[in-house]
Every structure is written in structure tokens, then in C-alpha cells.
Amino acid sequence: MPIECGRTKAAEAGDMRALRIAATPHVEHYTLGLYGELASRARITLVTLRRFDLPVDQVVTPRVPLPRMRTLLRDLALRSISGSVNVVHANCSAEGMVVPQKDKLVVTEHGFPDPSVVEESSRWFYVKERASLLKLAELGVPIVAISNFTAKELREKLGVTASAVIYHGVLDIFRAQAPRTHPKRHIILWNSRLVRFKEPRVLLEAVEKLRGKASFSARLRGDGPLKREIKVLIERRGLSGTVSLSEPVPFRDLPSLYSSATIYVHTCSREPFGLAVLEAMASGLPVVVPKSGGAYEVAGSAALPFEPGDSSSLAEQLLALMEDPELYEKMSERSIRRAGEFSWKRAAEEYLALYERVAR
């Protein structure tokens, strides 16, 4: 079964930029943002399981009926292409292990692979990722962390020293033109995976404490192993009239999702970065985050912080935003200003500098 190869017009015309890079994708926000910026500065070949709307060459693995066979085909394509490029950028360590020429490799670790904090169904991947990361670090492969918090976790928990910390950017589709005004009724948004690591119960407990104190509703958007448990918890605590639980929205609908809310809440106290927090800030939403982890690092003084895992502390900050129009509008303005400090252009420049060092 052939592997689909896409060629850009520039490639067809024989355009040969200085650096040739093979890369694997990550989430859509990251893939579009980073490789969209890099496309004009280097020759990118994306080795992927699906096609992205990007002006780069793409090798897309075909769909096959056998479990994990498609990933195996992707790995074979990456191995084959790696011999004809200057740099291979893998977005997880397990993918990096596939590359024969480790001296060409750069790996971005989008977190810290700790099998003890994930559900049983995902543990096998974290075990594999952890072993792969330790091996690559031992071989001297440059490891990029996505926040200082993540770099610290890698160093203290695994003994891995990151070669660089490179922040994500935010796509222009999320950027608001003006701060929000204080609404008559609030809609609190939580948008993440429904897993224990993300601590969604903290928000439900805070909502329960706020009952009768303000006019608001809360929306939990996401999917995952805790979905049934969260749904039952909402019903048992009599929160069905206040809290709604729904499926994740497609990437193209995310800007509308943020626009429909008035406050964004993040509850994970060990978040590696917090891309959703950054996008919510860019859209002008006041954000409330735990006083720890990558989300706190990203939001900085633009967020109202609460004590990690403390639903009473979270409820106090939410109530302050809902009751104080001046505070609400000030925090909306701060969100936009803080998000303006993050860009995919800057991230691309930092990655390009790292690629050039590896390619020497």
C-alpha cells in the first residue's frame, strides 16, 4: 500500500532552502503554528498520520485495518526520510528512537512521562516514552522542554537536563481585538481531557460552593476515562442545571468556544504548559489557574491564582471575577497583553537556531 506524498509548489519548482528538516506533528495548534512559521525558513517534510493545511511537503501514512500498523508504517517512513535531511525533529522520544542517525535528532518532550499519574489504559505509552527519553538523553540528543516547570520536572524526576526551553505560541485566530466587558451572566469554561491528572473534580466542588451566590453556568468540554464518573457526580450533587458536560469541539470551532464563555478555569496543578490557557487569554478571557505548574508559569500575573487542589480557593477567585466588573475587565486586558508575549514566530526562530547547531 503506497504512502501518500504531498509536494508544495515551492518544492515542485526546485526551491532548496538551506536546512532540510523531517518532522513529526503534535496537536493541531502546535503543528500549524510552528511548522507554518518554519515553512518559509527551511525545507520541511512532515511525516504524519493525517494531512495538515500547511505549505510543506507531507508524507501521510495510509489507513490500514490492523492495529498499530499505521504507526509502524509512519515509523518506517520517518526512518527512510531521515537519511536525506539535515535535522529530524520528533515530538516525542518514542518517535525519536526510530531515527537511526541520532546526531541529526532534536526531540521536544511535551511533558514529563510519569506512568504513575495516568490511567491504566495509557500507562504502556508513558513507560515506553520514559525509557526512550532516558536513552536519548544518555546519547546526548538535544531535548527541548516546553516550560521551565517541565524542565525542572525532567531534571528532578528523571535526571534529564533540557537543552532548551521553548514556549509555544498562539495562532492569530484566537487573538481578540479588545478586552471583554463584564457580562450580566457568566459562563465558566473548562476545556481539557477528562483524566485524573487534569483534576476536573476541583471545578465541580467549587461550583457546588458557589451555588446561590452568583448567576452563572459552567461548561466542561472534553472526553476521557473520567467522563462517566464526572457525569454521575454532576447528577448526584444536583448540579445538572448549572454544569453541562459535552464532547470536545473540532479545532476550527475552538475560537467560537472561547468567545462563548466569560471566564476560563484550568485545574491541573502539574500542567506541562497550558496551551488552552494561552488561547483563552488571547481571546480576552480572564483566567483562573492553580498556583503551580506550567499553566501558572504561562499565565503569570495575568491570571487569578488559587491554591492547587483547593476548591474553596478556586470558588473565591471565581466569585471575585463575577462580582467585580472592574476586576473582570482589568483581568481581561491583562490576558490579552500577556498572550501577546507568546508567538509562533519567536518559537520558530528558537527552534531554527537549535536546528542549525545540530546540523553543523
Rank of each mutant, 00 (worst) to 15 (best):
P2D: 10
A13F: 09
A13R: 11
I21C: 14
A23K: 00
H29E: 14
L46R: 13
V59H: 09
T61S: 11
L66P: 08
L72R: 15
L78G: 02
I81L: 09
I81V: 13
H89W: 02
A90T: 14
V98G: 01
K104R: 10
E109P: 01
G111R: 08
F112P: 01
V118I: 09
S122D: 13
R130N: 07
S147Q: 10
T150C: 06
A151L: 03
L154C: 10
R155T: 08
E156V: 06
V160S: 04
A162E: 04
V165H: 01
V165G: 03
V170Q: 06
D172N: 14
L189R: 05
N191T: 04
R193V: 06
V207D: 10
E208Q: 11
S217T: 12
G222K: 00
K227Y: 08
K231G: 11
L239N: 05
P248M: 04
S260Q: 09
Y264N: 02
P286D: 06
V288Q: 01
G293L: 04
E297Y: 06
E297S: 06
F306K: 00
D310M: 01
L314N: 00
L318C: 07
L319V: 13
P325M: 14
Y328D: 05
E329G: 03
S332G: 09
R337L: 12
R338P: 00
A339L: 04
W344Y: 12
